[in-house]
Design a protein around this nucleic acid. Structure first.
Length: 528
RNA sequence: GGCGCCUUCGUCUAGGGGUUAGGACGCGGCUCUCUCACGGCUGAAACACGGGUUCGAUUCCCGUAGGCGCUACCA
């Protein structure tokens, strides 16, 4: 008796375990599938990032597939650009174009035979048909009939294998007439797209049109067909993409059904869009130009127009900052933490903490992130930026001085590109002095005070000990009842050329006695 | 036009039937100070509107409005 009960319980447990293991054991495989039609937009970068975070969190695979099924829009160099951009950002692929893998090829233009096979399957099953209407004819139809849609209600009056006799279809084919393959949508069906972020989205199949799946002109499928076939063949488990795809998701669900692949259909997650910082609408390349910030990860040279667009890398951004900013644009961990390493993001990311509404791109906030990350960088890591500037100008210096200079000014920098401007005065003596600062800080008694200071400085052997020098000079000031500001402000002006920079005795230490005195003398001769 | 998605400070967002509606960026003030920054403290700043449901809605439901997306032989 007991045995039977135990067995019954056991079998229940086994069943439920088996059941859940079917769900969880499917390997997580995601893909980033850009079209090589130009530079990779920052919104695309975020899509790639979320895919990457999701894949890595689940110990899954990240695939790079290039969707180059539109030969007309193909832009040379775009593919390499995409690969280089994501590599710079630290978004890594396990397989795909340029990475290889067992599902190769990963470039859709190299998979023509694959698609042909599946188009035939759909045609044979009566789920798709041939359409001979030329683009011009379709255009005319659309012009003549308001809201014209190629679907169950109109396909009979169009020129296709459903409306034409079998003989005529063969004749046209024999003549080598061009055609496209359209999916045959059955009306009056409720299609449900289960979205991991938005829940169930219902759509009536009646409002769908008989989308083009394949073009005989170039023997290439359109996005919809290629996307479904490849996701299936490449065993993609989750499709994480931009919200602009939500309207076509029902078609995709239908296609999985037509192919008989519903069992392994990937789960969908449609990400909210990245919006313009001002006004409304999707963030575009133009916005970056207009508002003066990059919308591309790295610099892009358009081979067609010859136009050059700035990138985050060249603008002096750290990849970690861009990643951190992007991660928080549409997702948050539910805590007050704002700074994350990639590993933390991988650990914390979750689709159900993604927001549903579009996010305006806040350029001020990326700058803030970059400032934070720049502060975290070791001075020695930043040194090459200064070394390069020095080399360009033929100025000799020591690594120690460069590192010290960076340490002195780093907190003022937002971009790596700011570094040189902020510490140039350490290496190049000012020749002219800021007019406004002279007016404000160079009083009548200033030359006298500075001459006195000069004499005082001559008595100090070395400026190496910052604190000692400071104490020495300040005590001297107090003894002579000089106002500290009246001495230090113009002193700074003589060393830096303007009223900026770190603590003055940090400056004198780095400059050394000889250079400090020299600059002071020069200024006293120059400023009238 | 049709269809779909969305709606908390200016922006990114947390929250969720009873909260002083929390954080961050930006902005203002104070502070630090030899300058400029950084930092610290602090202030102003939000639940789109109208109906329900409820003892009580910013939160749930329904409308409206607004925004966005899609509506190609582009992705």
């Amino acid at each position: 008796m007991m045995v039977i009960v135990a067995q019954t319980i056991m079998s229940h447990i086994t069943i439920s375990l088996f059941h859940s293991s079917v769900m969880t054991q499917r390997r997580v495989r995601v893909r980033f599938a850009p079209s090589p039609t130009g530079a990779l937009h920052i919104g695309g970068v975020r899509t790639a990032l979320y895919n990457y975070l999701f894949a890595k969190q689940h110990g899954g695979d990240m695939v790079l597939r290039i969707e180059d099924t539109d030969s007309a829009r193909f832009v040379p160099g775009a593919e390499d650009y995409i690969i280089e951009s994501l590599a710079w950002l630290g978004i890594q692929f396990d397989e795909g174009v340029s990475f290889g893998g067992k599902y190769a090829p990963y470039r859709q233009s190299e998979r023509k035979e694959v698609y042909q096979r599946y188009v035939k399957q759909l045609l044979d099953a009566g789920k798709a048909y041939l359409a001979f209407d030329t683009p011009a004819q379709l255009e005319a139809k659309r012009a003549a009939v308001p809201n014209f849609q190629y679907d169950a209600s109109t396909r009979a009056e169009m020129c296709n294998s459903l409306s034409l006799s079998a003989d005529e279809v063969s004749e046209r084919l024999a003549r080598g007439e061009q055609y496209i393959v359209r999916v045959k949508i059955e009306p009056h069906e409720d299609i449900v797209v289960h979205d991991l972020i938005r829940g169930d989205v219902h759509i009536q199949s009646t409002i769908l049109d008989d989308k083009a799946l394949y073009k005989s002109a170039d023997n290439l499928p359109t996005y919809h067909l290629a996307n479904i076939v490849d996701d299936h063949l490449m065993e993609i488990s989750h499709v994480i993409r931009g919200e602009e795809w939500l309207p076509s998701a029902p078609l995709h669900v239908l296609l999985y059904r037509y192919f008989g692949w519903e069992e392994t259909m990937p789960q969908f997650a449609h990400l909210p869009l990245l919006l313009k910082p001002d006004g409304n609408g999707k963030l575009s390349k133009r916005d970056g130009d207009r508002l003066g910030f990059p919308v591309f990860p790295i610099e892009w040279h358009d081979p067609g127009s010859g136009e050059k667009s700035s990138g985050y890398r060249e603008a002096g951004y750290l990849p970690e900052a861009v990643i951190n900013f992007l991660a928080l644009l549409g997702w948050n961990p539910g805590t007050d933490q704002e700074l994350f390493t990639m590993d933390e993001l991988i650990r914390l990311f979750s689709l159900d903490r993604c927001s549903k509404s579009g996010a305006k791109f806040d350029y001020e906030k990326v700058k803030w992130f970059n400032h934070k990350y720049l502060q975290q960088q070791a001075n020695s890591v930043l040194a090459p930026y200064i070394a390069a500037e020095l080399a360009e100008r033929g100025i000799a210096s020591s690594p120690q001085k460069i590192v010290a200079a960076i340490g002195a000014i780093k907190e003022r920098a937002t971009f790596t590109a700011d570094l040189w401007e902020l510490c140039a005065f350490f290496f190049v003596a000012p020749v002219t002095f800021n007019e406004k600062d002279i007016q404000k800080r160079w009083k009548e008694e200033t030359p006298e005070l500075l001459h006195a200071l000069l004499e005082k400085l001559e008595t100090i052997d070395s400026f190496d000990d910052i604190e000692a020098t400071e104490n020495d000079v300040k005590t001297w000031c107090q003894a002579r009842e000089y106002n500290l500001g009246a001495v230090m402000n113009p002193f700074r002006l003589t060393l830096v050329g303007e009223m900026k920079g770190p603590q003055i005795f940090v400056i004198t230490q780095l400059l050394g006695k000889h250079e400090t005195v020299k600059r002071l003398r020069y200024a006293l001769e120059t400023i009238k």
